[in-house]
Amino acid sequence: MAVLTARRDASSSSSVRDLALTALTPLTWGSTYAVTTEFLPPGRPMFTAMTRALPAGLVLLAATRVLPRGAWWWRAAVLGVLNIGAFFPLLFLAAYRLPGGVAAVLGAVGPLFALAFAALLLAERPTARKLLAALTGLAGVGLVVLRADARMDVLGVLAGLAGAASMAAGTVLTKRWGRPEGVGPLGLTAWQLTAGGLLLVPVTLLVEGPPPALDGRAVGGYLYLGAVGTAAAYWVWFRGLSRLPATSVAFLPLLSPLSAAVIGWAALGQALTPLQLLGMALAFGGTLAGQWSGGRRREAVPAPPAPPAAPAVTARRSS
């Protein structure tokens, strides 16, 4: 019994460490807005998306020196499109056509999409607790970033919802397919970033034309986004996804708008109102509640040993 308890405690501690490490990814993503507005050239969302993905993917591909095999050629392409190639442009399109608050709220719908995809692809029934956690997180993000004068744009709203659905589908499919034998999270990250970045090359040239001229600040911003906000962040993300339930990981992006708000307050001098602080508490509470598995599974308790059987008695015949 003591051995079973020790194993359970060790497994729980490992899960908490994996969850805390994976949460660093959306916290890092929260810095994207400040870096984009303060360092990068304006009006180039496709170029920014491509520059984030492709160089990072090629560097990781050269470092791992592992290529997909068999079915993983098309699986890596599908995951690269969902998590990178489609998600990045849809995210930037929503951000450019909508106020940042509206775009962030649409992105916060991601956990609801993830619960639906997990039910279809992983046979994980969404519990009432998870649904309530997703709605609580969505409401909290809305209080943090939504403004009363926010304007709506149909194309922007559709892009925001499609981006959230794309990321949620990619998260669930990554969990469903896992990784091929002998390939670690770094290799899987390299495949997806490269596939998504290659998809973005013709789209970027078609929509925005040749690359813009870059100064030192822009180069530094792109290096940060590529190395920290993409290569390292997605490696940590896919590592966590391989060890944690998909629906639990899907709640962590709720931390991204909170990180952006804190960075805006600390680095850009943006004020935080009491209502925003309440929203941050709600969003953080929804994220924590989304990690609840719905009850502990009981450990099997070994049955007590059966008493030794009584020795057989052989009756003597009386002579």
Score class of each variant (00 low, 15 high):
Gly80Lys: 01
Gly285Val: 06
Trp265Leu: 10
Ala271Ser: 15
Pro202Met: 10
Ser293Ile: 00
Arg52Gly: 03
Leu200Thr: 03
Thr127Gln: 12
Val105Pro: 02
Glu38Val: 08
Ala2Thr: 14
Pro210Gly: 13
Asp18Lys: 02
Ala123Trp: 11
Leu93Ala: 13
Gly285Gln: 09
Leu135Trp: 12
Pro302Asn: 01
Leu58Ile: 15
Ser256Val: 00
Lys175His: 14
Arg8Thr: 09
Ala165Leu: 08
Trp73Val: 10
Leu254Tyr: 05
Gly156Leu: 06
Arg217Gln: 14
Pro211Glu: 10
Gly286Gln: 06
Leu199Arg: 00
Phe251Ile: 06
Trp29Phe: 14
Gly57Ala: 05
Glu38Asp: 13
Thr5Asn: 12
Ser14Gly: 08
Phe88Cys: 02
Ala114Cys: 09
Gly285Arg: 06
Thr287Gly: 02
Met50Arg: 00
Thr230Pro: 03
Ala56Cys: 07
Ala10Gln: 13
Pro202Gly: 11
Ala218Asp: 04
Ser256Glu: 15
Gly137Pro: 09
Met152Ser: 14
Val313Cys: 03
Val66Lys: 10
Pro304Glu: 11
Ala306Cys: 00
Arg7Ser: 12
Leu199Gly: 01
Gly137Gln: 06
Leu161Cys: 10
Ala104Arg: 05
Ala133Arg: 01
Arg239Gly: 01
Leu61Tyr: 04
Ala306Lys: 12
Ser319Leu: 14
Thr127Ala: 12
Met280Gln: 04
Gly85Asn: 04
Val66Thr: 15
Arg97Trp: 03
Trp74Gln: 11
Arg176Tyr: 03
Pro41Phe: 11
Gly107Leu: 10
Met46Glu: 09
Leu199Ile: 13
Ala159Phe: 02
Leu205Gln: 09
Trp265Phe: 15
Pro99Ile: 03
Leu60Asn: 02
Ala246Ile: 04
Leu199Asp: 01
Val78Met: 14
Pro307Lys: 06
Gly290Ile: 07
Ala266Leu: 15
Thr194Asn: 03
Val59Lys: 10
Ala306Tyr: 00
Leu115Trp: 02
Ala2Phe: 05
Lys175Val: 05
Arg44Thr: 11
Trp191Phe: 14
Leu135Thr: 05
Gly170Val: 09
Gly226Pro: 03
Ala76Tyr: 01
